[in-house]
Design a protein around this nucleic acid. Sequence first.
DNA 1: GTCTATAGCAGGATAGAC
DNA 2: GTCTATCCTGCTATAGAC
Lengths: 217, 217
Amino acid sequence: MRSPNDSADKTRKRILATAEKLFAQKGYNGVSVREITQSAKCNLAAVNYHFGNKKNLYFDVFRYQLLPRLAEIETRFEDNLAKQTEINLETIIRTLTLVFIEKHLNNLGNESLNSMMHREINNPTGAVEIVIKEGMAPFFEVLIKQLKPYLPENMDEIKIKLNIFSMIAMSLYFSLAQLPVTTITGKEYNETFINQLTEHIVSFALHGLYGNSGEIC
Amino acid sequence: MRSPNDSADKTRKRILATAEKLFAQKGYNGVSVREITQSAKCNLAAVNYHFGNKKNLYFDVFRYQLLPRLAEIETRFEDNLAKQTEINLETIIRTLTLVFIEKHLNNLGNESLNSMMHREINNPTGAVEIVIKEGMAPFFEVLIKQLKPYLPENMDEIKIKLNIFSMIAMSLYFSLAQLPVTTITGKEYNETFINQLTEHIVSFALHGLYGNSGEIC
DNA sequence: GTCTATAGCAGGATAGAC
DNA sequence: GTCTATCCTGCTATAGAC
């Protein structure tokens, strides 16, 4: 049996999911409400009914779609790390890199999270701040807690954070900037190359991070 | 004395410069031709007269504004490197990082190059390809030539390229993603912090790059 | 080459029937 | 809650005077 709100809820969710996909692909100004409602197979007025206006729909995509997605990534990172037979700096970095990179092998939806954060970084509308404060910040806490035992004691929190940002920067760049990478290396993003990229990031980050501590090789 | 085309040329250039700034800030769909012409203090019809249509203006911004800007960066990199008393891996990396980071200290206009490349990476319109092929590719050749003597012989070209991309990824991220970095570290982008960032990138890259060669510490 | 005026269209939003 | 019809604004692009 369906509750009275079932259908409404479904329309609402369909709009959110469709909007996420389209906003990620084309940006806020690149998508019209008409396109969203047509793609979500509902009426034009539905967006205004459920979300008030277009801007609010955009914000709700961050709140109800992207924030949970970031939480999923965090969970997946912790789960995958727990599965490792041995935990050390390398396995932590590899696990982190894999959760950021894996969207290219299976469609887990990280793509829109990365893409929309990437867009927002260029012209913030206020929507990212939700994700940064409620999503990224706690993720950083988890990462710092995991990394700290394996890092030199003299590395302060700011330095650890800069190191984490650097790893994320590489993963994001190689995920999003496929066009320049493919054009300049001549390599397509197939499984072999993605593995090579992952190993590169892990190795670069591992040495970068450890060397960075002041303990010169 | 002014040549007959002087005024037209000036209008054209004013439009190009204004369009670069606005497209970088708000993206293609975020800016109207009206806004550009008003900001460039010329008539609405001037864009169509000089560039045919809006899309073509956007392409010409890449061709005539961004491409020369990338060439400038390349020149500045080579000039600054030539000024070093000693050239080694560290000085090359530091010089490269500085040319990418320095836009935050003085306004050299790199900002719009980074910003627009960043935007295009998300939804390519065909305009980036010009910059990649005619700007980035030759820059990579220069970088490879400079780096090669200081790298282990067993590092192939693909690996060198991935290493260069990783350095660029970090510089771009710390330049563009100021909001998350500031929110999470609690540090404002003042001169002290920018210096810390630069040193972090140089150190991370130096160890990442060298460690990456297989010569384990 | 520069400008005004305007055609022609697409966008967000809403009113009101069902 | 859903839909159609419609308002109104703002956009690109062009025609044609100067």
